[in-house]
């Protein structure tokens, strides 16, 4: 019920008055979903096949973003690379927020020694700079998309847990929790049916902002050569491999760089809009 309620809040109240910016946000999200699902099919050329006759050609009508040293079409590689670039970020943000939410809910509601112990572990995770922790974990687990997801989720976990816990600490003192407790509801019921619905919108917003951070983190890891291996057309890796040609063929590193910039700014703006629509009165702030 809570889920449908929040969905109604997003769709009817705020989004009924869809302005140009709102349509742009929706269009952006739809385009990204489309590219993730069907990127390799949409791309005009193969992202992997070599074409030595056309190596290092500049942007032209046939190759809008030019070709790389193996003659691969950079435009097609960027389109096909949406999936390895964004799916990792989305999965990492989702896993991190999931871990953080469950930890924050339990720590905040149960309190006491459990809270203390869990939050000290979270503090330890947070005393590493994000990129460094992710780097160490991926190096030890090995280069694989799933390991990058785990590493980035590990970076987000404590941050999400703190956020959810701070909200739960406040909610736990409200009357409706007392009421549930005096009705004799179990802890699990209170956590899942009373507290979770009330932090749901906060989690959604947190997730949308984490996606941007995850795109930046995974793109930085890929740029450092950690977690993805050629010939995957992940954008960060394309920048890394193209960088050596910058004097000869600027389009090699520049177009994938721009793709990262456009997508991360896009997701940031979508997240900001979501945050504002939730933060305005009547927009579904937890009561």
């Amino acid at each position: 019920m809570a889920m449908s309620q929040s969905l109604v809040l997003v769709t009817s109240r705020r989004w009924r008055r869809l302005d140009a910016a709102g349509i742009a946000c929706l269009g952006f999200v739809l385009l990204m979903v489309l590219l993730i699902l069907f990127g390799p099919q949409i791309a005009p050329r193969s992202a992997l096949a070599f074409d030595p006759l056309h190596s290092l050609e500049g942007p032209s009508p046939a190759f809008p973003f030019g070709t790389d040293e193996f003659g691969r079409d950079i435009f097609s590689r960027i389109i096909a690379g949406t999936r390895p670039t964004l799916l990792v970020a989305l999965a990492a943000a989702a896993l991190g927020v999931l871990l953080g939410t469950s930890t924050g809910l339990v720590a905040g509601y149960v309190g006491g020694a459990v809270d203390e112990a869990v939050m000290r572990v979270m503090d330890t995770l947070m005393s590493f700079p994000g990129l460094i922790l992710a780097m160490l974990v991926v190096v030890m687990l090995g280069p694989d998309a799933m390991n990058v997801v785990i590493a980035i989720a590990l970076v987000f976990w404590p941050r999400s847990a703190r956020l959810v816990r701070s909200v739960v600490l406040d909610l736990a003192t409200r009357e409706f929790i007392d009421a549930a407790r005096s009705r004799g509801e179990t802890r699990l019921f209170i956590l899942a049916r009373e507290l979770l619905p009330n932090v749901l919108m906060i989690i959604v917003v947190d997730f949308s902002l984490r996606v941007t951070a995850a795109i930046l983190l995974s793109a930085s890891l890929a740029y450092l050569g950690i977690g993805v291996t050629p010939p995957t057309p992940a954008w960060g890796l394309m920048v890394r491999d193209g960088q050596q040609f910058i004097e000869l063929a600027w389009w090699l590193p520049v177009f994938p760089s721009l793709a990262i910039a456009v997508v991360s700014i896009g997701t940031l703006l979508v997240g900001e809009r979501l945050r504002r629509s939730v933060a305005t009165p009547g927009g579904g702030r937890p009561r």
């Binding site: 930085s220 740029y223 920048v239 600027w250 520049v254 760089s257 990262i260 910039a261 700014i265 940031l268």
Partner: peptide
Amino acid sequence: AVGAHAMPEYVIGLLAILCFSIWLPLLPG
């Protein structure tokens, strides 16, 4: 601020290298 915050450092850095060390050879890249 929003633009700079949402871009990885190497994107800004590459554009800087391109502008100030390749197109305008002022600084070492």
